[in-house]
């Protein structure tokens, strides 16, 4: 038996065990920007945990906006749950219904849960992750609470996988710590493409893929949120648009049995 065959068979076996890569949770959802979706192998996985880190502690709202965009893409037309905590609320302010509507989320689709502390927030989001009627659940975490360990995130992933609810965890100021998240992003604010009279434009982000469970290499995209079509798009004038992709990208079929094993590595 050839060692590479054995290796790829082993990889496939591990893939099938990994939550978030196997197709149990259904088709992935597209972010809306073709080159990003191609890079991710068709989009982001549904029914798993995605982590969004704030690139700048001073601009936490960029991570929130990106996370909300991901959740909206994942949810389709279904309801959302947003779990908040009192300390976070004091720091970044309360959610604003008019602002959610201006971002493209009908506020009547949203259930807001206000937990006292990280423990309560985790339990609430775990409860939400088991409700198959939901489209997505968001949770914000400030700092690095001890309760949020590998076990907790694995638990969330398992709950989400069974129900198909996509979880988005927004880490406001945490350094990366081990977690079972399928993707981890670092999102910083960037200046938008101004509209007429130098007015600030659409929400713009520099989103860096820090970790991907299927081993996609790290890369940064400049994205804008297009509220009218509810998708991420390329900015009108993007500095990184001219740069070619670092290498040819082969899209991986869901389930992991693709010819792309050579380009795959474990990251994180």
């Amino acid at each position: 038996m050839q060692p590479p065959v054995a290796l790829s068979a082993l990889r496939r076996a591990v893939m099938a065990l990994e939550p978030g890569i196997a197709s149990a949770a259904g088709r992935p959802f597209e972010t809306g920007r073709p080159d990003l979706d191609a890079w991710l192998g068709g989009g982001l996985a549904r029914g798993v945990l995605h982590e969004v880190h704030a690139g700048h502690a001073r601009h936490p709202a960029a991570a929130t906006g990106f996370g909300l965009g991901v959740a909206l893409r994942a949810a389709g037309g279904r309801p959302l749950v947003w779990v908040r905590q009192d300390p976070v609320e004091a720091r970044v302010g309360g959610l604003y219904g008019d602002g959610l509507a201006a971002f493209g989320l009908d506020p009547s689709r949203l259930v807001v849960v206000r937990a006292r502390d990280p423990t309560g927030a985790l339990r609430a989001v775990d409860e939400a992750a088991r409700c198959s009627g939901l489209g997505a659940a968001l949770v914000e975490m400030g700092g690095a609470p001890g309760i949020l360990d590998l076990k907790a995130s694995r638990r969330l992933t398992l709950s989400a996988r069974a129900s198909g609810v996509t979880l988005v965890m927004i880490r406001l100021d945490a350094s990366a710590c081990p977690s079972a998240a399928t993707t981890r992003w670092s999102v910083a604010a960037v200046t938008s493409s101004p509209v007429e009279a130098k007015a600030p434009g659409r929400p713009a982000f520099a989103a860096t893929l820090l970790r991907h469970r299927a081993g996609r290499p790290s890369r940064t995209w400049h994205l804008e949120w297009d509220r009218d079509s509810l998708r991420f798009s390329s900015p009108v004038a993007e500095p990184a648009a001219a740069a070619p992709l670092p290498r040819a990208v082969v899209s991986v079929p869901v389930g992991g049995a693709g010819p792309a094993e050579a380009g795959r590595r474990r990251a994180g």
Binding site: G93, A101, P107
Partner: peptide, 21 residues
Amino acid sequence: SAPWPVPEPSEPPARPLHLFD
């Protein structure tokens, strides 16, 4: 609930996501 304000197409959001109170 009263109807939510309908955003102008292709305009950036006029209201913030987070509000300080």
